[in-house]
Design a protein around this nucleic acid. Structure first.
Lengths: 250, 250
DNA sequence: AGCAAAATGTCGGCTAATTTACACTTCGCT
DNA sequence: AGCGAAGTGTAAATTAGCCGACATTTTGCT
């Protein structure tokens, strides 16, 4: 059911992006399924989701596009339904730092339900095309008030997110660049890789510079390490795909 | 009102610790005020807190004591009412790493409401004496279900915690050891310092090794930097107290 | 097809900070 | 009061990995 919808939608995206015509595709049912599919909203009944749908909007974007979200108007919570984006913050000195990589099914934006607009962040689309749902934070908060079970799920979700953040940072700090790269590849493979025995293939939508930023090292070091891994037959790397020969060897 | 309770309690702690006699002090009213004082529980009515009190227990401990909490039995959430503790994790290689410094009023333990007992963590008491409240995670979850407002507050609380974690880690990664130390001292001063004009006095319950671990550097480097600051008249340091001469100069 | 821009590859010099090693000081305890 | 342990001070050797400075390759675009 969902699959059909996504396929239809996908086909259309190629033709039309970001015109008022977009609105045509925002019929209730489609929105219903987009939310229904997310594990956070599985506890809600059809009517409850319908209710949430009223406050839902969604957006499509193509590779390389930049989406400002922390800025300006009313605070929102976003749900990435398809594709990959990176959250980038502008440093005081003007240089980019990757704050987060958001994958299909992830929520992002002001997850804390707390408005604070001092951070200058934006999202950049990494994959070929993305679909993003959004709803007003205040409306979402209302929904949580009326659905305590959802509130608990959401709390657990935020908690889980925190645990991940802590873990990855702990890695960054105590391990050296090589270990960090290995760990990153393992995580990435686990989350998105297609496994075949002990061989894992990952669709590579990141540049070496992106990878370097994620594991907090210089581009040059990342390049060196990746090449070293390739000569050691641990991975085979190109711009489209990374194949980990034996995930257990990492 | 609260103050009186705390004073009474404090006086007794010195005499008796960790005997069954402890139970004598766990009368409802005391527990009520301990919880009432926490901002998270301010939204609850007296009767609601009374209800939570049934599931509350509390514990006292003295400096240097080690409290295991992630281990063994039923998952709990803890609230530090008085004093300071550090959360320490044992690395694979057997060496300690400080995960967190918990201060008066902070919650700790499995904040994610999710049980995962694989992590080997314990708490070590830093200040002269501490008072810790705890309740069963499952009971707390029930309470959240019945009080959506509390659930939202709690989510915001966890979110705020995450934001702090992210910020401090961002510092650790992008700045050098000196900047990290300065930032740490600023934060510490803000949270616990006693300000007098631009001079701030902090009660120093940390060893230089602790500080080193927090700002993720070696003990030697931390020592050097602290001494350098002292010769530069930025701070005056001893084992009991740190005085920042001019907080605006850091 | 052809050009500019982005991404990747490679090389030393440089520096902050870890490591190792040891002396000294303070604390807690009997 | 006196001993061992914990905490602090200092200095030299070593190193991971950042940075600048290129060359080369690949991509996207018209």
């Amino acid at each position: 059911m969902l699959k059909t919808y996504q396929k239809d939608n996908h086909a259309i995206v190629k033709l039309i992006t970001f015109t008022p015509t977009d609105l045509i595709f925002m019929y209730e049912d489609l929105k219903y399924w987009y939310l229904r599919d997310h594990k956070l909203f599985r506890t809600l009944s059809y009517s409850q989701i319908k209710q949430l749908c009223i406050i839902t909007g969604f957006k499509k974007a193509a590779k390389g596009e930049i989406i400002y979200f922390s800025s300006s108007d009313v605070p929102r919570i976003f749900l990435l339904k398809k594709g990959n984006i990176k959250i980038v913050a502008i440093d005081d000195d003007g240089n980019e730092t990757i704050k987060d990589i958001i994958q299909k099914g992830d929520l992002f934006g002001e997850l804390t339900l707390e408005t604070d607009n001092k951070v200058e962040e934006y999202a950049k689309v990494l994959s070929d095309d993305v679909v993003i749902c959004s709803f007003l934070m205040s409306d979402f908060e209302d929904l949580l008030l009326r659905n305590p079970t959802l509130a608990i799920s959401y709390t657990k979700f935020v908690g889980l997110k925190m645990k991940r953040v802590k873990n990855s940072y702990a890695n960054l700090i105590s391990k050296d660049a090589k270990t960090r790269l290995y760990q990153f590849l393992k995580d990435w493979a686990e989350q998105e890789g297609v496994r075949n025995g002990n061989t894992v293939a990952i669709e590579n939508y990141l540049t070496q510079n992106d990878i370097a930023q994620i594991i907090c090292t210089s581009r040059q070091t990342a390049t060196q390490l990746l090449n070293e891994m390739e000569t050691n037959q641990l991975i085979s790397y190109n711009r489209k795909e990374i194949i980990i020969q034996d995930i257990t060897k990492l």
